[in-house]
Design a protein around this nucleic acid. Sequence first.
RNA 1: GGGAGCUUAGCUCAGUUGGUUCAGAGCAUCUGCCUUACAAGCAGAGGGUCGUGGGUUCGAAUCCCUCAGCUCCCACCA
Length: 899
Amino acid sequence: MEISNRYDPKIVEDKWYKHWLEQKFFRSTPDAREPYSIVIPPPNVTGVLHMGHMLNNTIQDVLIRKARLEGKNPCWVPGTDHASIATEAKVVQMLREKKIRKSDISREEFLKYAWEWKEKYGGIILEQLKKLGASVDWERVHFTMDDDYYKAVIRVFVDLHKKGFIYRGLRMVNWDCEAQTTVSNEEVLYAENGEKSFLYHVQYQIKGTNDFIVIATQRPETIMGDTAVAVNPNDERYKNLIGKTVLVPMIHREVPVIGDNYVEKEFGTGCLKVTPAHDQNDYDIGLRHNLPVIATINPDGTLNEKCELPEYVGKDRFKVRKLVVERLKTENLLVKEEEFITRVGRSERTNSIVEPMLSMQWFIKMKEISKRALEAVEKDEVQLHPDKFKNTYRHWMENVRDWCISRQLWWGHRIPAWYDEAGNVYVAETFDEALKQVVSRQSSVVSEENTLHPPPSTPNTLRQDEDVLDTWASSWLWPIAVFDGFNDKCFDKQKGKINKAANAELNYYYPTKILVTAPEILFFWVARMIIAGYEYLDEKPFSDVYLHGIVRDKQRRKMSKSLGNSPDPLDLMAQYGADGVRIGMLFSSPAGNDLLFDEKLCEQGRNFCNKIWNALRLVKGWEVHEGKNEHNEAAILWFENRMNQVIEQLENSYKDFRISEALHTLYNLIWDDFCSWYLEMIKPPFQQPLDKFTYDKTVDFLEKLMQIAHPFVPFISEEIWHTLKERDEKDCITVSSYPQAKPFDESVLKKAETAKEIISRIRDARAQAGISPKEELPLLVTTANKTGYDFFKGMIMKLAVLKSFEFTATDVENAKTILIGSDKLFLQIQANVNPEEEKKKIIQEIDYYKGFIKSVSSKLSNERFVSGAPAAVIEKEKQKLADGEAKLKALEESLAKLN
RNA sequence: GGGAGCUUAGCUCAGUUGGUUCAGAGCAUCUGCCUUACAAGCAGAGGGUCGUGGGUUCGAAUCCCUCAGCUCCCACCA
């Protein structure tokens, strides 16, 4: 069979992915095996996958494929997230390009466009996952707005409302005037170095006097909403004013001067104007002092009639700011105008300045519901990797704030609340149920906020809340909902709990094994999933959380479309193969660290695949004859032991989720140990056949190596699996078994290391002397332990290209001397080396060993060390001392000879 | 302002309970090779006072403190 000398992923990858799907290798249903489930962090359907997703999904696939090889029942659930605000923004933009304005179309029409968008991008995302080789169960694709999922979200809302965790309240929210929606704190961005602004010092007249008090503000346009002026109660300058009344400029509203510790004496003038309607802190002060709230700004950012100045009504707040400043100037109320760097928040989606606004919103009370989720991580029931995130998690959970879950959007789960004409609220899963509540309202308690209103006369006027839920209020149910955990059969509406036993899937797969995601969404998503898990199942959603870093470019910049520094994953995979990209992604991304992506890493991955490929070519190219070549025994024994050692190391890496480390270990095993050493050791001379015994062993090694490598490089490993031997279509590496870790003999490994060192040193000496690597050289050795060489002598002769290997009792003159331990190797070459250089090197070494011996012997003569350290450590130290002394002696002899 | 973390080779990072076979890996660099699997390759080499200054210890990259620099999270000053 002719095998190309270049590995070509293109022909291989699609072929095998298709085959795997046909064989249903990724399909999982509950059975007797141990489950190993992972739910994918559902990518947003805002667009196509980026490099961060590649990293995220490669890690998951490695874990899933490893579990599959280990005979577990791996279930990797794929899906996508509707990502309400992000997707809606994309759709609005897309429509804008088509000259369609959201405000001109109906909710239904808009949703039609949004669904089309979802179908398109959701589809692309799933195709990208296939290209990557993701072994997800394609019969389990979920979307956070699928019918079942939608119902689950609504059901949870109703349930939490019933339990008293959800309430409706007036709160200061971040308002995006352009998108006309609230945005979460997390969606508010601040410019790195702040933004330039002005601090205006404005005079407020003290009532009944001609005196003034000067406040400092950035937002003069909110003056008309002022309901107090606050000073620090300990501020000697102003404390006497507390209780007095001042006049708000322009509108002459009488407001009190109050004392509040929030005010910092040093900042500005030490006097703060209080506008409870348009600033969070002012609102808090207002609550403490029972101040009225006057909202002067409309949701669209214009001023309303409450500002009492008709000329400003309907004008944008920033325009009004200018007008107010001018007016204050003309009225001589503006004392000072200083430049000021402020950290103003902008909406992540529209970049418009976020307006703190009082608004009626739905909230989830977080304190109580999140208690067990905090404990779970504290007690390591849920383990975070790396565990430094425990601190961050604790800090957040201990200071958790109520979660505003309503969004003024169309794309998402519409809030299941209905209002009657009187303003009563009915929270129910369906309209019909809400209607029922209306009918039975007279006698029953509905909810707190309704008690003020009488029951409606005509129930038919019920109108549903226009808002939808925050995306995370659906994705926090992901690990439960993808197993249909909220269906009628297993969800107990009375208790508000899921009966796991009534749902075979949930019972088998939940809790899932591990969640792989980025630390950025530790709170938005991870923490909330844990909360939901305990609330509905009294159980964690996953045992481990692997938090990987952000993919950045070489200059540490976050990859983004606008910077154009993000490569297209599909292009990369076309260029380097999916396996190459997978390796590239994992090569330098230990958990918790950002990945500085460099295309060279993918190139390295591709080269690695090619290396494996050529190992296959070599093996397949040999002619095999019956029999057994005794000379290869040492190599086989060594590699067997070495492989077992590495398998054990890999297990340790996997155990701690050190995926990157595992890959490095594997890479070295294949490239260095197998290709560079083992294959060279057993390689027969040109055009000579290989003995069958060695051949079979080698094929066996290569198969095992491919099984170990399979989680990282699924495609090439499958291809090699089938090229090595004729196999049945069902006999795939994907569903084969992971090699067991077997005990290994340290002494064999140690002897081999010595042999390898000898070979390297001889090659080095040869290179320095300028002698061709092909020229066979004689070697003479002095040693106290001749038998120590027996095993690897043949190997050394072969790889160091020696003519002979003899022992001698006396030192050899005119030869290059190589010290290995206390043994001396004399390589008979014309040593064109500088004796002074040689001496210098030896003296350096002698110094090192003298220091070494001194340190070890002082340790051994130290009473506290000898009495304190365990026997094994002392024994080791003694051995070190003996070795060191022998080495020193040999060195000194060599030096003497040179003199 | 509160909290967490980082600083080891030119670059990116390992270094698990302190023990001079522990100062490492990959990339990059340099030297020599088209050696019949692979130039997407082979064989070698050089390179670090382990951020600074102290301390604990028989012994410190590892533990403690100081300082400097960097990063992240949370809150946020009108």
